[in-house]
């Protein structure tokens, strides 16, 4: 499925820039302009330290950007918008160790929700990530991959229109990573969500997305925006064998390599 030109833009970013103030001001984000259409899966790939986490904090209203505007469903983002959830890069620190898995998920539900409905919502999101049995456990009793699933389940229970994910699978092994990637594609179908997925893994960005944005080093800008027309449903083995996939990933790898060559003295 490719992005239709007619799809409305859920998230619009215009001239976004951020400078960390301090004794040595650091310009993390130069200038970003892009949109995330409703229902799309957009990947952002960029080198470590290029400002991906900074960008997501600005988009989610946790931090005020130095320049530019973010609009969600047409409304400028000033505070933390209700229709947006963020899955943190550091999932083990973003889960509360004093709450059970179910308690962590229930934490994001509206306070006035009746008890039965609460339990149902918790169970539904745990089932969606394949952790239906783990509700009574504590996050620290689970493996890293399972903890990340809990963080995803919590975001699902919140029922946002758009899900922002910050390198969510960076610290799990390759097998778990492949499982979690497919899990994301599945829950996206099930919950009909728009997803903005940040990663530094080129293959992952192509495998998951309808569109890949390639970022430069700090102060970051968008080097190129590529539409991914690979057929869905995607498959860990056969999708990665397709010529289109191979070409795209090589193209992106070349872009990123050229980026890192820039600024170096010629050999």
């Amino acid at each position: 499925m490719s992005i239709q030109a007619t799809a409305t833009d859920l998230l619009t970013i215009e001239g976004l820039g951020h400078v960390y103030e301090g004794t040595e001001p650091f310009e993390a984000i130069g200038k970003l302009d892009f949109t995330v259409p409703e229902g799309a899966f957009v990947s952002i790939v960029g080198p470590s330290g290029c400002g991906k986490t900074t960008m997501l904090r600005c988009l989610s209203g946790l931090m005020k950007p130095t320049r530019g505007e973010v609009r969600l469903e047409g409304e400028p983002v000033t505070g933390v918008p209700r229709d947006l959830a963020l899955v943190f890069q550091d999932y083990s620190r973003s889960l509360f160790p004093w709450r059970t898995v179910a308690g962590n998920i229930a934490y994001v539900l509206p306070r006035d929700l009746p008890k039965a409905e609460r339990a149902a919502r918790v169970q539904e999101s745990l089932d969606a990530v394949g952790l239906g049995e783990a509700g009574a456990k504590y996050p620290w009793q689970l493996s890293g991959g399972m903890q990340q699933r809990v963080a995803i389940a919590r975001a699902l229970a919140y029922r946002p229109a758009i899900l922002l994910m910050d390198e969510p699978f960076a610290s799990v092994d390759a097998q778990t990573r492949a499982e979690l990637e497919d899990l994301m594609l599945a829950v996206r179908e099930q919950f009909g969500m728009t997803i903005l997925f940040v990663t530094h893994d080129i293959d992952e960005s192509v495998y998951l997305a309808d569109r890949v944005l390639v970022l430069s080093k700090s102060p970051s800008t968008i080097v190129e925006s590529l539409d991914v027309d690979l057929p869905r449903p995607r498959d860990q083995v056969s999708t990665r064998e397709l010529d289109d996939f191979v070409h795209l990933r090589s193209h992106i790898a070349r872009l990123i390599r050229d980026q890192s060559m820039k600024g170096r003295p010629a050999a």
Partner: peptide
């Protein structure tokens, strides 16, 4: 990060 999580929700 725990505080940011609460804020983000």
């Amino acid at each position: 990060i725990a505080k940011l999580t609460a804020k983000s929700f």
